[in-house]
Simulated assay, not measured.
Amino acid sequence: MRAIVIDEPGEPEVMRLKETAAPTPGQGEVSIDIEARGVNFIDIYQRSGAYAVATPFTPGVEGAGTVSAVGAAVDELAVGQRCAWVMHPGSYADRAVVPANRVAPVPDEVTSEQAAATLLQGMTAQYLTHSTYPIQPGDTVLVHAAAGGTGLLIAQLAKLRGGRVIGTVSTRAKEEQARAAGVDHVIRYTEADVADAVADLTAGEGVAAVYDGVGADTFEASLASLRPRGVLALFGQASGPVPPLDPQRLNTAGSVYLTRPSLGHYIAQRSELLQRAADVFELVAAGDLEVRVGGRYPLSEAAQAHTDLAARRTTGKLLLL
């Protein structure tokens, strides 16, 4: 089978498409013939060495396809069943072996492309808006990178929960994408001070929560945009890590809360994984959650997909097909 293999961390060109032996499932595992793979910032972090991973390895933590074989002690999944998974490596390949307890069934109403484009970022948006800070009707929230794959989903879920959404973007084209997803007010951070604009839009009160997957470039504005006792959910670091912080700043900002959540901790139990996945797929199937695919690349062009994502030249989700 074909697989992208990284022998040492580095620039996108270290990803090489090779012929490798097809894996077989062991106890508690399933083999999945992959149809679509999501491209995520964590893939870039691992490829570049920002997140240490033992080499050689095949990147990709999200995929969708069909179960081709099951190992011993697997009774929830069957050969021929459509499925998807997140948070397990090896999706940049024709086939992957995944622990069965990390795999979620995909309903007939959801395509493999939709599943691969939605599951990781969709469950991220779901836990952020339903658990990290459960948005209440009338809440105003700030979503950074509102035209990105996760940002578009956060905005839609926030609106479904009755929230008012302020989103940040970099260009007019991305502003249009954000507004199409239901963002009420768009701030182009290249042209305006985000915290000042949020203050104007909230009559100086600030927002109930900030969903920040950008990190270093946006953190100060995020902190300054919160209302007293607001929540800053720093769920990513696309622009780099945030420097160490004196906790006293949370006091002076208004007794605000700072959390650094991760999807893995919100789907640690299989029951929680299945519930979040089912919630996301149900919304997709009903047409209430739009999945925007910003780019489709053949597996052989994984390096180009990484380059485009890192340069923020894209909107929505990138897929390897």
Results as ranks from 00 to 15, higher is better:
residue 1 M to I: 13
residue 2 R to I: 08
residue 2 R to S: 09
residue 4 I to T: 01
residue 5 V to I: 15
residue 6 I to R: 01
residue 8 E to D: 13
residue 13 E to D: 15
residue 18 K to F: 08
residue 18 K to V: 14
residue 19 E to Y: 10
residue 20 T to C: 13
residue 22 A to R: 13
residue 29 E to L: 05
residue 44 I to C: 07
residue 48 S to P: 10
residue 51 Y to P: 10
residue 51 Y to I: 15
residue 53 V to C: 10
residue 56 P to G: 03
residue 58 T to S: 07
residue 63 G to T: 08
residue 63 G to L: 06
residue 66 T to S: 11
residue 68 S to H: 08
residue 69 A to H: 06
residue 78 A to K: 11
residue 80 G to Q: 08
residue 89 P to D: 03
residue 96 A to E: 07
residue 96 A to C: 12
residue 97 V to Y: 02
residue 100 A to E: 05
residue 109 E to M: 12
residue 115 A to R: 05
residue 116 A to C: 12
residue 119 L to N: 03
residue 120 L to S: 10
residue 130 H to E: 08
residue 133 Y to M: 13
residue 138 G to T: 06
residue 139 D to Y: 03
residue 143 V to D: 00
residue 149 G to R: 01
residue 151 G to N: 05
residue 152 L to Q: 06
residue 160 L to N: 01
residue 162 G to D: 05
residue 163 G to H: 00
residue 163 G to K: 03
residue 173 A to M: 12
residue 177 Q to T: 07
residue 180 A to H: 04
residue 185 H to S: 09
residue 188 R to S: 12
residue 188 R to L: 12
residue 189 Y to G: 06
residue 198 V to I: 10
residue 205 E to G: 11
residue 208 A to Y: 05
residue 218 T to N: 00
residue 226 L to H: 02
residue 227 R to W: 06
residue 229 R to D: 14
residue 233 A to C: 12
residue 234 L to I: 11
residue 236 G to K: 00
residue 238 A to N: 04
residue 245 L to H: 07
residue 247 P to Q: 05
residue 256 V to F: 01
residue 256 V to D: 01
residue 264 G to V: 15
residue 266 Y to H: 15
residue 269 Q to E: 15
residue 270 R to Y: 11
residue 271 S to A: 14
residue 272 E to K: 14
residue 275 Q to K: 15
residue 279 D to K: 07
residue 288 D to S: 13
residue 300 S to E: 13
residue 301 E to N: 13
residue 308 D to N: 14
residue 320 L to A: 04
residue 320 L to V: 04
